[in-house]
Write a protein that binds this DNA or RNA. Structure first.
Length: 637
RNA sequence: GCCAGUGUAGCUCAAUGGUAGAGCGGCUGCCUUGUAAGCAGUAGGUUGCGGGUUCGAGCCCCGCCGCUGGCUCCA
């Protein structure tokens, strides 16, 4: 048999007989590697460990703890689950079973409507199949054979998937009695799957099409080791503990009532948080040449017809009719800002013009999509529209990026940027698009911000930057986008007079830093687990008198601190100190100030910080100055 | 909107189709309190809403609403 050359990642070349499997090579390298191996990367493509090599290749052994290895493991677990479900619920049709992030799912059409209560039985069956340790075999067959097979098995979804495949690219994977149409790769045997758990069940449309049948989607996850699975499950629990829908009401920030689905009720403490963030934004924007405006929240539909919203966005707008007149509540501010721009003849010297607005916006979101503060029907953005000359795009985008950075670094949030470029259907000319995209890239590079490109993902009216925030639990949220817009200036016939006296079209930049304040606060609640930095905390200090004899002193301390700009309250309940400390801790109040005999006599407070613990006695004035400074610096804990 | 689940006191949860309960929280009183829960008492409910089955419904059936997990959507 001929020999082939296998190049390993360290550059060394191994000569082996043709038909050698990656697994055998792994064994030669070392038993430890062979044990951790779940797949192989052949010329950069992930493939099965036991698929024979037939030519010279570059080979990398994929171990179970690598990103690719984990994906293989989870994908195989999806098959394992499908096999178990098939055994338990005969007649189940399989659709697709991919890996998404740390989870996998399988969409199935099952005669029984499954719930989490069915999970233990399915998991038990999965464990059984693991124990049976079936070899997972790849088989390549012709399209005709595959069609015959899945027709015989009565698998309509697989047949539909087959329709889109070509002869020569069809593979099956078998383990025991189970067979599935699959590209692979998979772990060598079912015994490789050690730690898994089914997580949830939900509905999902076949092929994501709401006119197609609704399938059951079972989510699960798998890890190389039980301990890693448990760590993951603990992270889910931590996320549940931090859930803003639970913490928000518990901290007195906001509530929801079924009388107004999708609209938050902001309680006094939540409103402080809200206003503090809004004012933070105001302060930064005023310093950067933004002008705050306020525009109508209800307009005649002709405005929305002119802006194009009526055509493209009507279904998401709250609409109404009075005196035969069609009206709508604004879902965005841009058309109103365009009207204001147009009130005057603008000179090239006037640009850029930056209108900022914090007013209420409403969007009709489908009832099933509402989710706490994260998805609402009524919200406010820290919205702004910049009217700029084309030669100002780069500089203005650079300014917006700087603003992003100030806001997110102040809050200790990591973020990443994606640039979405010209889609297939677009407005304007290729040249304009190219120039705009170039300007965005130059601004990003000037700002020193790394970014990824999403080719073809821009809006039809202009390219955009999406900002993704990563929170304390490493979850990623999209908060804001910066979009260049060539269409609205056109639709509203916006112009400016250039140096040569000619009328030119400005470019519009839509941008928001927080995005929706509601959503952003939801993210912050979960990010900080309710323990906001002092400058954001609704109550920054709580004075805890040891007994009624010290109430007067406590109120005096509170008065002094209030005058120093600190949000402070006195716990005047008839309770023990331990009780009041516990309550203040649960309310995540940054500073607890215990006052009694010693403090009253010396004009001090005994300071306890929610996370740093007992800080000892401090002079009231000195404490006040230190906290005022912490607030002014917007310090993180 | 769609599929599934779910809805009992402010919160967390009990109650084989047979008189709706507990803990926490609230309020009142006692204790006079020193760094994560003192003691006692007390109020609080048309069991989401509307129909139906039944001698009898928190529980079973139908419709509606909210919420949850997803899907779809997201200028």
């Amino acid at each position: 048999m001929a020999a082939i050359n296998v190049t390993l990642p360290d550059g060394s070349v191994k000569q082996v007989p043709q038909g050698t499997t990656p697994y055998e090579i792994a064994e030669q390298i070392g038993p430890k590697l062979a044990k951790a191996a779940v797949a192989a990367k052949v010329d950069g493509k992930v493939t099965d460990l036991k698929r024979p090599l037939d030519r010279d290749v570059a080979l990398e052994i994929v171990t179970v703890d690598s990103p690719e290895g984990l994906e293989v493991l989870r994908h195989s677990t999806a098959h394992l689950m499908a096999q178990a479900i098939r055994r338990l619920y005969p007649g189940t049709k399989l659709a697709i079973g991919p890996v998404v992030g740390e989870r996998f799912y399988y969409d199935i059409d099952c005669p029984k409507s499954l719930t989490v209560e069915d999970f233990p039985a399915i998991e038990a069956e999965m464990a059984k199949i693991v124990k049976e340790n079936w070899e997972i075999r790849r088989e390549e067959i012709s399209k005709a054979d595959a069609e015959a097979l899945f027709r015989e098995m009565d698998e309509p979804f697989k047949l539909e998937i087959l329709e889109g495949l070509q002869d020569g690219e069809i593979s099956l994977y078998r383990q025991g009695e189970f067979v599935d149409l699959c590209r692979g790769p998979h772990v060598p045997t079912t015994g490789y799957i050690k730690a898994f758990k089914l997580l949830s069940v939900a509905g999902a449309y076949w092929r994501g099409d709401s006119s197609r049948p609704m399938l059951q989607r079972i989510y699960g996850t798998a890890f190389p080791k039980q301990s890693e699975l448990e760590a993951y499950l603990q992270r889910l629990e931590e996320a549940a503990r931090r859930d803003h829908r639970r913490l928000g009401p518990a901290l007195g920030l906001f509530s929801f009532h079924e009388e107004s689905p999708g609209f938050a009720y902001w309680h006094p403490k939540g409103q402080i948080l809200y206003r503090t963030l809004e004012n933070f934004s105001r302060e930064l924007q005023e310093a950067r040449g933004y002008q705050e405006v306020a525009t109508p929240w209800i307009s005649r539909s002709q405005l929305w017809e002119q802006s194009g919203h009526w055509e493209h966005y009507r279904e998401n707008m709250f609409r109404m009719e009075y005196e035969g007149e069609s009206l709508a509540v604004k879902p965005m501010n841009c058309p109103n800002h365009c009207l204001m721009y147009k009130e005057q003849t603008r000179s090239y010297r006037d640009l850029p013009i930056r209108f900022a607005e914090y007013g209420p916006l409403s969007r009709y979101e489908l009832s099933g999509t509402l989710h706490g503060l994260m998805r609402v029907r009524g919200f406010h953005q820290d919205d702004a529209h910049l009217y700029v000359r084309e030669d100002q795009i780069e500089q203005e985008i650079f300014g917006v990026l700087e603003l992003f950075d100030v806001v997110y670094s102040t809050l200790g949030l990591k973020y990443s940027i994606k640039l979405s470029t010209r889609p297939e259907k677009f407005l304007g000319t290729v040249e304009t698009w190219d120039r705009a995209e170039q300007a965005l890239m130059r601004a990003l590079e000037k700002a020193g911000r790394p970014y990824e490109i999403n080719p073809g993902d821009g809006a039809f009216y202009g390219p955009k930057l999406d900002i993704y925030v990563t929170d304390a639990l490493e979850r990623v949220w999209q908060c804001a986008t910066v979009q260049l817009d060539y269409q609205l200036p056109e639709r509203f016939d916006l112009t400016y007079v250039d140096a040569d006296g000619s009328h030119k079209r400005p470019v519009m930049i839509h941008r928001a830093i927080f995005g929706s304040l509601e959503r952003f606060i939801g993210i912050l609640v979960e990010h900080f687990a309710g323990a906001f930095p002092t400058w954001l905390a609704p109550v920054q200090a709580r004075v805890i008198p040891v007994g009624i004899n010290y109430f007067e002193y406590a109120y005096g301390v509170a008065e002094k601190l209030k005058r120093m700009g600190i949000r402070v309250e006195v716990d005047s309940r008839n309770e023990k100190v331990g009780y009041k400390i516990r309550d203040a801790q649960l309310q995540k109040i940054p500073y607890m100030l215990v006052v009694g005999e010693k403090e009253a006599a010396s004009g001090t407070v005994a300071v306890r910080h929610r996370s740093r613990g007992d800080l000892g006695a401090q002079d009231v004035e000195a404490f006040g100055r230190a906290v005022a400074d912490e607030i002014a610096r917007r310090a993180l804990d």
